[in-house]
Write a protein that binds this DNA or RNA. Structure first.
Length: 123
DNA sequence: CCATTGACCGGCT
DNA sequence: TAGCCGGCCAATG
């Protein structure tokens, strides 16, 4: 009975989980997802993983935006419009192709959460 | 195997 | 507000 060879579990499971936690009508950033997944400073990996992830995972990828509140795709591009319409459908509004992160970001940034997730010393 | 890319980010000029 | 920079490092060529 050993199942050692195992079905090599997808090592990015933590990232998928974090993404699935983002509520409808809210958005999170690549960096925040990385942090929540236990991979500090690996924002880029989140983008790479999302790009290669199978659609069958049904991830709410449209809720992931850059930390500045902008979509990661070129304005006007196909994926840009798709993501934007999906977000608008959930009630997220845009102003100059930008989302007000102080209002829509999840998790919300509070002093306590910041220390819990990021700690005092920036790095 | 080595080099370049890239759905990023925070700090600093 | 606008760039540039270094850190990160899987994926791709």
């Amino acid at each position: 009975m050993k199942k050692s060879p195992k079905k090599s579990a997808d090592p990015y499971e933590p990232i998928y989980t974090a993404i699935r936690r983002v509520p409808k009508g809210k958005v999170s950033s690549y960096g925040a997802i990385a942090q929540l997944a236990g991979l500090p400073r690996r924002a880029r990996l989140v983008g790479t993983v999302l790009k290669n992830s199978s659609p069958s995972l049904k991830l709410p990828w449209h809720r992931i935006v850059t930390s500045s509140g902008r979509l990661a795709f070129p304005v006007g591009s196909d994926p840009f419009r798709t993501q934007q319409s999906r977000l608008k459908r959930e009630g997220v509004t845009f102003a100059n192709n930008k989302i007000d992160m102080s209002f829509y970001a999840w998790p919300p940034r509070t002093v306590e959460l910041d220390e819990l997730l990021w700690g005092h010393d920036s790095r």
